[in-house]
Structures are given as C-alpha cells and as structure tokens.
Simulated scan of single mutants.
Amino acid sequence: MAISIFGLLEVMLLFINAVAILNEERFLAKIGWGRQAANPYEQESVKARIVNLITAVSTLMRIPLIGLNIIVILYLVVLG
C-alpha cells in the first residue's frame, strides 16, 4: 500500500471534518472540554488552546470545508 500526498491530504481533510462537526453542547461539555469548562485565568494551558482551536475550526472552516469536500468527492468520482 503506497502512501501518496493525496492520501495524506485526504486524511487531514477527514480529521478537520471530524473536528468541525463536534458539537460543544452535546459532546465537548459532557467530557469537560466546553468553553465554560476552560478557566479564563489559564489561557495558556493546553486544554484551553485545544478548546479554542476546536471552536475556531468549527466556525471559520465551515464554508471552506464544504468546497474542499466537493472538490475531493468530484476528484475521486472522476479519477477513482
């Protein structure tokens, strides 16, 4: 099984899709990773940075991800 650049890009796209669809109220807050669970005085903690990254990806990357997913799906349908 050969690993290609497109395969790595596809894995990254799937990972970003997974992060973008995480719902804060349904999933993240239940495991203690919601924005309310992050202590405002610990802005430099790893947990606070990951929570901020998840929030940023879900809000900023929503529209570009739709376009990227359409391009990848069309590429895979046409070229296999």
Results as ranks from 00 to 15, higher is better:
residue 68 L to E: 00
residue 7 G to A: 11
residue 73 I to Q: 06
residue 1 M to N: 08
residue 61 M to I: 11
residue 63 I to T: 13
residue 44 E to F: 07
residue 68 L to S: 00
residue 61 M to E: 05
residue 15 F to P: 09
residue 51 V to N: 01
residue 50 I to V: 14
residue 45 S to N: 10
residue 59 T to C: 06
residue 13 L to M: 09
residue 5 I to K: 06
residue 11 V to Q: 13
residue 27 F to D: 09
residue 22 L to R: 00
residue 78 V to Q: 15
residue 1 M to K: 07
residue 6 F to H: 03
residue 24 E to C: 02
residue 66 I to W: 02
residue 67 G to E: 00
residue 28 L to G: 00
residue 50 I to M: 08
residue 57 V to F: 06
residue 45 S to C: 08
residue 26 R to W: 11
residue 33 W to D: 03
residue 34 G to N: 07
residue 33 W to F: 13
residue 51 V to D: 03
residue 11 V to A: 14
residue 58 S to K: 15
residue 76 L to M: 14
residue 41 Y to H: 09
residue 43 Q to I: 03
residue 66 I to D: 01
residue 40 P to D: 04
residue 36 Q to M: 13
residue 1 M to Q: 09
residue 45 S to D: 07
residue 54 I to Q: 10
residue 71 I to S: 05
residue 80 G to F: 13
residue 15 F to H: 13
residue 48 A to C: 12
residue 41 Y to R: 10
residue 1 M to D: 05
residue 39 N to Q: 04
residue 47 K to V: 14
residue 28 L to K: 00
residue 48 A to L: 04
residue 14 L to M: 11
residue 15 F to Y: 15
residue 68 L to W: 00
residue 41 Y to S: 13
residue 78 V to S: 15
residue 76 L to D: 15
residue 56 A to P: 01
residue 5 I to M: 02
residue 67 G to T: 01
residue 35 R to P: 04
residue 54 I to L: 13
residue 19 V to C: 14
residue 14 L to H: 10
residue 43 Q to D: 03
residue 45 S to L: 05
residue 2 A to M: 01
residue 49 R to Q: 14
residue 9 L to D: 04
residue 40 P to A: 03
residue 64 P to N: 11
residue 40 P to V: 03
residue 62 R to H: 04
residue 65 L to W: 06
residue 48 A to K: 12
residue 48 A to E: 10
residue 9 L to S: 08
residue 23 N to S: 12
residue 4 S to F: 01
residue 41 Y to G: 09
residue 44 E to I: 01
residue 38 A to M: 10
residue 69 N to P: 00
residue 2 A to V: 02
residue 22 L to W: 04
residue 66 I to C: 01
residue 37 A to N: 06
residue 11 V to G: 12
residue 29 A to E: 15
residue 45 S to Y: 08
residue 35 R to C: 02
residue 20 A to S: 15
residue 76 L to A: 13
residue 7 G to H: 11
residue 23 N to I: 04
residue 48 A to D: 12
residue 25 E to P: 00
